[in-house]
Design a protein around this nucleic acid. Structure first.
Lengths: 149, 149
DNA sequence: TTCTTTTGGAAAATTATTCTCCGCAAAGAA
DNA sequence: TTCTTTGCGGAGAATAATTTTCCAAAAGAA
């Protein structure tokens, strides 16, 4: 079984366990999230799902993504400007490197933020539940040709 | 001269050098940014400026903040949900600890992200220009009383 | 003063996201 | 099977945050 297939299976099992219906639309959203190598936006997912379900609405995409996010199966990557991106491959906080020109997003390997989180919790008294770390800049391609932003 | 006064002076000098007009409205926005201990939103700045300039518009606040951001004198802290916060005290990227319940924001001391930025640039070929690091959770007060989010 | 440029204000426009309402359809009960 | 309950999807409205447009007023230069 491929990674994608087993991940899909894992999520479907979780949905069933929670008495959530596996509708064709939800399945389509899930598939696209898992088949996208990158970090699609809602609009991109919407466009893809519409190829199979021309009448699907954007609200359904949002609802499904919110559901999956709530289950911890999808990570929302909040862009500072523009739409959020979604990642079903690594649904836990991890660093990103983002091109501000072409909007490309790269995952970056795990950093030892767990211990840092712990240190911050102790120092501030906060109960830390989440974090986000993003580096912004220009990707190699945009450094060359593009008009830098 | 106090820190706030010298910082204000420093920014005014920069504005003058760039032939930007120091209008009463801009001065008011600047003062509020520098007098706020926290990280105010546009709406909060707007409300404060309106006490002295009842006819000022929100657009003016945004224009001024955007100008200052462009000069590198104000940092925009992008919340994932809700309005951005602005910080004129430390206008360079630095970590924040944010309470998702009461929206409190704490600065956290500098972390050695400069060398990490350098490492990422070398590894990815990106020209890194900015980063953001935010930890989300519940502050001590909200852990106690509030209904956790 | 007169000309030119910049600024500020009001409202409209944009972008991203969420909500409401209603009919339908699936799953379990009888 | 038939009834019933509940969740789900779709259309469009609503909301929130931010930006833009347009024009008159203000400021600086000649």
């Amino acid at each position: 079984m491929t990674d994608t297939a087993s991940r899909l299976d894992q999520i479907l099992t979780k949905l069933r366990a929670l008495d959530c219906r596996i509708t064709p639309q939800r399945l389509a959203v899930l598939r696209i999230l898992l088949e996208s190598p990158g970090h699609p936006t809602m609009e991109e997912i919407y466009a893809q799902v519409r190829r199979d379900f021309p009448t699907v609405s954007l609200a359904t995409i949002y609802k499904t993504a919110t559901l999956l996010k709530g289950l911890g199966e999808v990570l929302e990557v909040g862009m500072r400007h523009g739409s959020s991106r979604y990642d079903a491959h690594k649904p836990y906080p991890h660093p990103h490197v983002i091109c501000t020109h072409c909007k490309a997003i790269l995952d970056f390997e795990e950093l030892p933020l767990a211990e840092l989180t712990q240190a911050i919790a102790e120092k501030t008294g906060f109960e830390i539940r989440d974090h986000q770390l993003e580096f912004f800049g220009l990707c190699p391609a945009c450094r060359e040709g593009g008009s830098p932003t």
